[in-house]
Design a protein around this nucleic acid. Sequence first.
DNA 1: CTTGGAAAGTCAACAAGGCTGACATAAAGT
DNA 2: ACTTTATGTCAGCCTTGTTGACTTTCCAAG
Lengths: 172, 172
Amino acid sequence: MAERGAAQSSASSGESLLFLTDEQLRRGIEAMFFAYRGFTADPDRILENYAYGRAHHRAIHFINRSPGTTVNNLLAILGVTKQSLNRVLRTLVEDGLVESRVGTRDKRERHLYLTDQGIALERELSEAQRTRMRAAYRAAGPDAVAGFRTVLEQMMDPELRHHYFSNTEGGA
Amino acid sequence: MAERGAAQSSASSGESLLFLTDEQLRRGIEAMFFAYRGFTADPDRILENYAYGRAHHRAIHFINRSPGTTVNNLLAILGVTKQSLNRVLRTLVEDGLVESRVGTRDKRERHLYLTDQGIALERELSEAQRTRMRAAYRAAGPDAVAGFRTVLEQMMDPELRHHYFSNTEGGA
DNA sequence: CTTGGAAAGTCAACAAGGCTGACATAAAGT
DNA sequence: ACTTTATGTCAGCCTTGTTGACTTTCCAAG
């Protein structure tokens, strides 16, 4: 499936065996833009009620996914500066949604956990997001979903892909 | 709430009839997050050289896509306030990348066009983005690409979907 | 034990790009 | 004539990103 031709610009070659025309690619690009907006719309609406933003959502999501993760881990996943993350984390700790425990093995590290309140907000946010995703998956069908995931994973930076999608494929 | 138990958390049944487990959905959600970051990474790097941001990129993209579009059209597509868009548009006009022509039929409207310089930057940006998209498409294969597009379109807000993807399916 | 350096936190300043509100102008519609 | 629409602009605010400088804590190597 790799030898899909050279995908040259626009209509230079009439080969319609190609599906990688600039027009097709442009549609994919716009689809990403609009879909991402839809994807974040529901959580954004909820977050307004709590005076939080997307940055808080991301922190909550990944702490929920990996309870006990360290600040440095989170930094690597989120790809922001520690100052930026710290600002978000501080408010979440102050508000009692996240607990920061000093490490036992290495006391410099802080291990992050959601409190019951944090878990509640995570549920609310992810449930909204899953609902939309579920609807899209249902409407598109299983084959489309597989393709969706495949392309998305190929679109990420390779390092990240290996890190997060190499050993998680066992399930299902 | 709404114990999504219906979705049989994790891999309870080997039957792949079900593909809507919370775990599957979570993976899709994270894939969207990471893929979007990859998707914007290349243009972002280029934009730094010009002291522009994503907002400029979006304006340039949609003006290129629909030359002569009005400010109001752009506002509707981008989903931002006119003040926000105006700030971006002003710098692009000042810098000679976008031309704003008073409408002939309705002189209140401004019709937007990319200048040669604007076209050049658009090419640079979209070429970078297409390159990544093309690579992902090639690695994933045609069937995956179809599924990718289908799911993304389902994930957008319905109104937008109808507006932008109903009559553009003719090609290919 | 001392010291180097990593991990974490903090303060300050700044920028992009969202937002609201208020207001101005020209042109179109009624 | 009056209202509405399209656009532009000023001012101010917020979130979330950035850099730089600095401190505290603490593991580990000398």
